[in-house]
Design a protein around this nucleic acid. Structure first.
Lengths: 225, 225
DNA sequence: GTCTATACATAGATAGAC
DNA sequence: GTCTATCTATGTATAGAC
């Protein structure tokens, strides 16, 4: 698998996750026509991501959003009931993406060393594909209300658990004594997050997702094996 | 060196960095009495860090700040000329801290493998000691104006360069072919930042700075050696 | 130096016409 | 479903008394 191949397979899952995000927020959405809803809401999402990643969600005004999304201020409130709710819809969307994609992806390998490699690669690719979304979720987590913050933490721990489980079985027996899969998984997560948090750096150095994944895999391999 | 020893040595440098931060902003500070200035300004800094790390700098109002710092709204503006300037004073302070401490610290070792270990350990310790400050600088960087953002980027690249230089000379000859000190330094930086960005996680797992530094050092050692 | 009072701008959200 | 107009709250920053 490389990034180009990954992209071809992802579109459907993205669309499914979007429909799911809409579904779980039906309560506060006043728009009834399916097509109009999905067209406009995804434009609203995109505009929000763009503005928030530029100056922060808090600093983005609803007027900024209304002009970037080409909808009036009043119309926006037919798609969500408050600015905070918008934040949480977007968070739910990207949280669902990473967990579904990652879980599906590792099922395709049986050997645990291959599983680890695939999990890392998939994580790099999905966060590359939706970089602004993940950047947004990471940076705005502390501005969310308590339940949404809890979901963010659970999301982090969920993906970390995927990694620590794989490492547990990959390393067992092979390395003497003191290995700690949970700590190792933490560090792996940190390096994976760097990929979507510091895009300016990797872009400047002309490092693409395939290259980053390759390097990361070999770095981790030589450390835990 | 362990964390407890580190703490004893740091106080003086912290005070010097604070005086320096005051000095570089004399222009917009109206308070003339040295003692009052440093007492109140450091209370203002602390209150800002605390509020901003809780709900974001943008969301923190000057009224929040005035009540937490025990100064009236009007009085605050004798210590800085705008909310944005306050942000930048704090950023300058923590940027100066890490670069001075790190540069001094590695001078104490000659062997490049020891140098690497010491740089990592020192980075963990300084960011532990001033965790809320580093968290603040990281999270609020995108809300700063252009020049301040540039300083933040230069700060990141500066510490990364320290690491890549050490790795360059530590690894040269010892590892065949494909090592890439710059990429390795990037990953190390990412793991080091995790320490102050995800405190909730390490606290929950009862991992302290010494333990984290030990683990990180052994993880990196086995990867690059 | 610090306070209170207030100017002035802009925020999020709603009402009601179309 | 979308618009414009507007309500009300809150924001940063300043003026001037003490």
């Amino acid at each position: 698998m490389n990034y180009a191949e990954f992209c071809k397979e992802i579109e459907m899952e993205k669309a499914a996750a979007f429909r799911n995000a809409v579904e779980s927020n039906k309560g506060s959405i006043k728009i009834k026509k399916e097509k109009k809803l999905s067209e406009n809401l995804s434009r609203i999402f995109d505009a929000t991501i763009e503005l928030a990643n530029e100056k922060g969600f808090q600093a983005m005004s609803m007027r900024d959003l209304s002009s970037k999304a080409s909808l009036s201020l009043g119309a926006l409130y037919s798609y969500f009931s408050s600015k905070d709710e918008l934040l949480e819809m977007i968070q739910g969307y990207s949280l669902a993406m990473v967990s579904v994609i990652l879980t599906d992806s590792i099922k395709k390998e049986t050997d645990s060393s291959k599983k680890l490699e695939r999990a890392i690669r998939t994580h790099v690719y999905i966060t590359e594909y939706m970089q602004p979304w993940f950047y947004f979720s990471y940076m705005e987590a502390k501005n969310m209300d308590r339940p949404a913050q809890k979901r963010a933490i659970e999301g982090e721990l969920f993906t970390e658990k995927i990694f620590s489980d794989i490492i547990e079985s990959a390393v067992s027996g092979k390395k003497p004594g003191d290995h700690d899969p949970v700590m190792t998984a933490s560090l792996i997560k940190a390096m994976l997050q760097d990929w979507y948090l510091k895009r300016w750096k990797y872009r400047k150095r002309k490092i693409g997702p395939d290259q980053f994944a390759d390097f990361l895999i070999s770095f981790i391999r030589s450390s835990i094996m």
